[in-house]
Computed example of a mutant assay.
Amino acid sequence: MEPVKLPFYVKFPCILLSVICLTYIFYIAKDIFTQVLMAFLFAVLLVPIFTFLNTKIKFPRYLAAITCVLLFAAFIIGILAFISYQVTDMANDFETIKKNANAFIIEVHKFIKGNFNVSIGEQKKYINTVTKDSVKNGTGTIGSAILSISDILLDSTIIPIYTFLFLLYKDHFILFLAKLIDKENHLVLKDILSQIKVSINKYIVGLILEMIIVSVLTSLGLWIIGIKYFILLGLITGILNLIPYIGILIAGIITVLASLTGSSETSIILGILIVNIIVQLIDNNILVPLIINSKVEINAFVSILGIIIGGTLAGISGMFLAIPLLAILKIIFDRIESLEPWGYLMGNDMPSKFIWRIRKIK
């Protein structure tokens, strides 16, 4: 039986309706989907280690999968332990931070009074009003914080389990996909799966490399201007930089607060801002195009749009997952003839010249 060929004006609304339905399903079940997709990315990253343990060292599949998950968990726990140790050390300077923060706030009050003619009393009155409004919503804020902590604890438990299961049943899932399509398309499926593995591996390794470089550059800059916990703050900046747009802002605020352990001078805070700006310029103009964009081959417009949509649907997790999911979609679109134009739209090919060729009808 030959497939039914629909005209474009029928096909496009069907595609659009399908996208809307899938997006809505993802939105209402985002907590489940984000956990599964995170585990899938980690599993793809760990596949080379799993294959080495299973085929070269002859580990049983269960043991190889457990070993991979434990190694990955040990790496994450090691980073968190270092950060926790440094944060505990920083907590000893709380009184100094409080004293310098008060001195800095007084300087800000004086600056606003001198440049905007707003008295210190009016400024404090406005701050008290905002504080009272925040206290009224305190119950909701505490409830949200408790809910967020419970979500983190759940994710830290369930994502390693999903990752283990993805590794364990890797071949089972591939055989399932093979059974879904005709045998003559198995070569295309094999090509898609291999390209997805390569693309995701390169992307995640690129993210890790970018994180290391940003951490080193930030630590070096903070050391030069005399910040006490420069290694910790550089590492936090590198990690938060993985979160598009808002990560670097959060890192900047944390760095400014930590700088108050040593001094409340405005020059130090200005130095921190300069360091962050220089590192971001290097990251956005050199590291991202060289390390990240070259791995996924997604143009900037689609990347930004995908990150915004991902953030709207699933928050920070959605923003993090947006780029690898777009890369997977592009790989699939490029290898299916009817979807190839959409793959081209997502790509970063820049034709030097395009000329419409119109045949005259006599």
Rank of each mutant, 00 (worst) to 15 (best):
L63K: 12
I79S: 00
V188E: 03
H109F: 14
I196H: 08
K136A: 15
L153H: 01
A178W: 11
F173V: 13
A65S: 14
I120V: 14
F176K: 10
I120M: 11
A65G: 04
Y162N: 02
A64P: 03
L147Q: 13
A145P: 03
A64S: 11
N185V: 04
L153R: 02
G138S: 13
F111H: 03
I105N: 07
S119P: 01
I152L: 12
G143A: 15
A81P: 01
S156F: 13
L70N: 10
F164C: 02
Q123G: 05
S150H: 12
F104A: 10
K125W: 08
K98S: 07
K170L: 08
L154A: 02
I142F: 15
F75D: 05
I158P: 04
D155W: 00
N117S: 12
E122Y: 09
M90W: 03
A145F: 12
I79L: 10
N128P: 03
Q86L: 02
T96C: 01
T157G: 11
D151L: 04
V188Q: 06
K113E: 15
L70K: 09
V130F: 04
L153A: 08
F166R: 00
T141A: 14
I174S: 00
L168Q: 00
V198G: 03
K179D: 14
N102K: 08
L167T: 05
K113Q: 15
D133E: 14
F164T: 00
D151I: 10
L187W: 12
I77N: 00
K124S: 07
F104R: 09
Q86A: 02
G143L: 15
L70D: 05
L71V: 11
L177T: 07
D89S: 14
I196T: 12
T129W: 10
I159V: 15
V130D: 09
T129C: 12
L147W: 11
P160K: 05
S156L: 13
F176L: 14
S134N: 08
T96W: 00
N117E: 11
I105R: 05
